[in-house]
């Protein structure tokens, strides 16, 4: 296929708190880019696994992260992404769950100059709490606590080696604000609920923002090929390698508003009181402060 002379290239971040629709977005983008006659295999989506993958770091740096301290690793990560972005000849999408933080040197871990665009995928924290508990194999009360814990991180153990680097998440609110208000980063916010309610508008906007050629038929097809039912069916038939070992499945219900049936009034209250300001800002609370 002939490439347009001014086709966009560079690194596009797919940033989100875990269980907020990131994989759905990756599935959509892969299907849109491939423009194939059948859905893309969820186990072979484009553009690498995740920004925190240990091997991405090791390859770019030249020594292994497993011989470095957590602080040294974080200080090198901006250089890793700068180096990684330098080699890109097309658009590359990279999923990331880290919050947008500064290293101990005061540099952003995700350098704006290495960034072509950023999509921040956001989901109602009341639903995230449920999904995150299934994913992490913990109770909903625990996941609510994690989401309110400023020190929460993924794979932060110093005693063992994981295939990913430590990812600082901050609180759920802290995570959202760290990205959407990051200086010098043009961040396009996509709400999970809008991807559900009006996929054509939500994904259409994404296509334009990242600089892919806009094509309605392609858009329709990519939305269908990345629908929740298609993804879930693929997982049931062939498994999904990004599922956590203890979780029953990765694609579970794919619903918005599941919290109404699953959370107790106390749990709703705990989430709302911890995250009211951010929830209000992104339309998850009405004027009276009640969840929408």
């Amino acid at each position: 296929m002939q490439q347009a002379p001014n086709e966009a290239r560079g690194l596009v971040w797919l940033a989100s708190y875990p269980k907020s629709g990131n994989t759905w977005m990756r599935a959509f983008l892969t299907n849109y880019q491939r423009n194939s006659d059948k859905p893309a295999d969820i186990n072979h989506l484009d553009n690498g696994p995740i920004a925190s993958a240990r091997e991405l770091f090791d390859d770019e740096v030249g020594v292994e992260a497993s011989d470095l301290t957590l602080d040294e690793i974080d200080r090198l990560r901006p250089l890793v992404y700068t180096q990684y972005a330098r080699s890109m000849e097309t658009l590359e999408f990279l999923k990331i769950h880290d919050a947008y933080t500064l290293t101990s040197r005061g540099e952003p871990m995700i350098p704006p100059q290495a960034t072509h665009a950023t999509l921040y995928i956001l989901r109602n924290p009341l639903d995230v709490a449920i999904s995150y508990s299934h994913h992490s194999h913990c109770t909903i009360d625990q996941s609510i606590q994690f989401m309110a814990d400023d020190d929460h991180s993924l794979v932060g153990s110093k005693r063992r080696l994981n295939n990913q680097l430590r990812q600082i998440l901050l609180t759920w609110s802290g995570h959202v604000l760290s990205w959407v208000d990051a200086p010098n980063m043009k961040v396009h916010v996509v709400r999970y609920e809008d991807m559900k309610k009006d996929p054509f508008a939500a994904f259409g906007a994404v296509v334009r923002v990242v600089g892919l050629p806009y094509d309605e038929e392609r858009l329709r097809k990519a939305i269908e090929f990345s629908s929740f039912d298609t993804l879930k069916k693929q997982e049931q038939e062939h498994g999904f390698r990004e599922k956590m070992p203890m979780a029953e499945s990765f694609f579970r219900e794919g619903k918005s508003g599941g919290w109404r049936a699953k959370l107790t009034a106390e749990q709703v209250q705990a989430v709302v009181s911890a995250h009211a300001a951010v929830m209000r800002r992104f339309g998850y609370l009405d004027e009276t402060g009640s969840p929408v």
Binding site: E60, V61, G62, V63, L76, L79, V80, Q83
Partner: peptide
Amino acid sequence: GVLYQTSEGEFLL
């Protein structure tokens, strides 16, 4: 690379 350079016969880390 991030912490190293290479050329024929030479490597610096």
